[in-house]
Design a protein around this nucleic acid. Structure first.
Lengths: 210, 210, 210, 210
DNA sequence: AATGAATGAGCTTTCATTCAT
DNA sequence: TATGAATGAAAGCTCATTCAT
């Protein structure tokens, strides 16, 4: 007797999320250039047809996957930069740092997706637009926060724009190293390196943590 | 009137380099996942067959291209870290910084290749081995140089390992930002950010450049 | 006006058989070394993709085609050698002969497949294993049947092994000649030649048919 | 210092024979469908260019190889059938049998070539013409010789055409079995089987050899 | 809404042939 | 004559997409 697979019907949103998660896992495991619709749908335990039903094309599925990861990150970061709950700039900066090295953000699969798309972004305007490091809004908010800290601390000779560019680059680089050589660089050490950077810039706000 | 192409015969090494350069350009322009043998050979102005004649497979061509770019970089860096021509640590550190932001190293096509492969490295041991950020040798040499600077400068509380990890991550991140958003971050600004980092760490060796 | 082909869905087993039959025809018409997936699928009126979908590779398709033809033959022969329906050895030997020169076995396409693979068998262990002339079981059964006939007929000086080897070679050779020069050797004549051979060996069992 | 391969110049006929022998070996070792110009010329220790220089095309090389093997065989057989040196029919028949199972004719490489081309002959008129089992001349000479033996021996009821067809098929089949299952059928046994056949037909001319 | 067999464009790779040396 | 690097048509195979069920 054949055991037929149940043909379960679920709302569009649930299906899309299932497929996006499967895509994230597949990219992390096999790399962007080895992704196939068959691989993704198999990982999701679904049929090939359903991916096209909900996303229309592979290109769309990838785009939406990138957007999903990027958006999740952006919302988290914005929440910290804009939230009213932080009593002072110091707490806000520390919260941002904690976020950047939280297990959620530095999850291997997520970072793998980031860098997979970064690798293609240069030649694919669509990707570039989405992951736009130049998440200009966030960059400005970060710079403003740093500018505030500079004023509060009376730090002379500090340029908020420089510091923001430096901090942004530093965490990107640390993530890359976390992804490629996790044995050489632990998450804890990476965070300490970033904390150092901030402590150096804003000694009155952030303490070095050795 | 048809202009028939002359069939030129050249030594293997020349052909391989032609093809590697074509591959670099194609990766920068179209992305790693859009690379085809036809694209590369067309870019090189050669026939499809010749790539397989000299590299045996696409996989090999890509591997050797990555190695070419990586090796060029590694040799440049090692030369600075090991050369006897620098009168003092200060000069050596400055030379390294100059190298890291030289037009040769920060050439768009080269950086595109780096990050294209980084994006796949996680799922491809072969790539990971080659680009091994953890170019362990270089990492150690860098750390030793920083350690020497720390001793020379009597900088207290500084950990050479931390600084090296930070500096490495910082330049990786800056390159990434240079690649993805060159309009937001100029090469000059990127270099200043890195110089800042070093000046902060080793004030007696490196001067801030505003 | 374009007549669009309907996309028909059929069970795997049906498709495989369609493709195997197409392969047999193509081998007969074009020869083993001229076989291409395009040729076979076109002959079957199907798309190129479907052959790989069901057989995974050309090599597999060929292997299964050889097995199909071989197996059909072996089963037919075994049925005769083992069946209980024959009243005596004489009837069984005659049935075998009839089978060996039946229109089914001596169909041109089938024989073409046999000899196409024989031609490659020497250098391809896989083929050799399948078509293994030395279908040892059948060879032994044939020898036993001949041995029985010898005892029954009181034929002196006859060696069942020799006769079996001779008969096997004779029908192989006759098939080859039927295939290569059908105008010179008709099926009827070929059968008479084989019948002669048996009548000579077992005069009390088999009558010469002139 | 580079040791440059000597560019030896040899007459056309020598080169052609070198290449034909290499082709025979390659067919025996790799099968007809795996033959490439590179394989053959490498086996011959020559350059690819030279094969095209002397044979113009692969097709030609194969054709001439087949012709070489076929012709060699045909000349050997004709010599026996036409020579004046045999004192009687009996000796001539025996000589033919000896020839058919001589080490020269039953050499594995030669037989491999035969059957490789037989496998393709059905679909390639060129091959069929060359190897034409129907080497009509030889077939007729054989039949005439058998007819003579029948007259000499007063064998009643014997049909020379039948016997010739049977003998021809028998040796073809024996060769095939020698090629495909040399462990099951030795050259000696094969010859005995054929001798049996002749001894049965012409008891006064040929003796059974047990 | 869901499935997966079927399609065929497009890829990598092979290899007979050409031709500069 | 002789060489083998260079060419490109043609092959096998993959996989995004379609669509009968």
């Amino acid at each position: 007797m054949k055991t037929k697979k149940k043909r379960q019907i679920l709302p569009k949103e649930v299906r899309k999320e299932q497929l996006i998660h499967a895509t994230i896992n597949c990219i992390a495991r096999h790399g962007l250039s080895a992704i196939t619709m068959a691989l993704v749908t198999q990982e999701a335990g679904l049929s090939i047809g359903i991916a096209n039903l909900h996303f229309e094309s592979k290109e769309n599925l990838l785009r939406e996957t990138l957007f999903y990861v990027t958006d999740e990150y952006n919302r988290g970061q914005r929440k910290i930069l804009e939230s009213e709950i932080y009593v002072d700039t110091s707490a806000r900066i520390q919260a941002l740092l904690d976020f950047h090295f939280s297990s959620e953000v530095t999850k291997e699969t997520k970072m793998a997706v980031w860098f997979a798309f970064y690798g293609e972004a240069n030649s694919r305007p669509t990707y570039q637009k989405i992951c736009s490091l130049s998440d200009t809004e966030a960059a400005q908010a970060l710079e403003q926060m740093f500018a505030l800290a500079i004023r509060e601390g009376g730090y002379l000779n500090l340029d908020a724009g420089f510091l923001a560019a430096g901090y942004t680059a530093l965490i990107d680089g640390l993530w890359l190293n976390l992804l490629l050589a996790p044995k050489q660089l632990s998450r804890l050490k990476a965070k300490k390196v970033a904390q150092h950077y901030l402590a150096n810039a804003f000694p009155k706000h952030i303490v070095r943590q050795d």
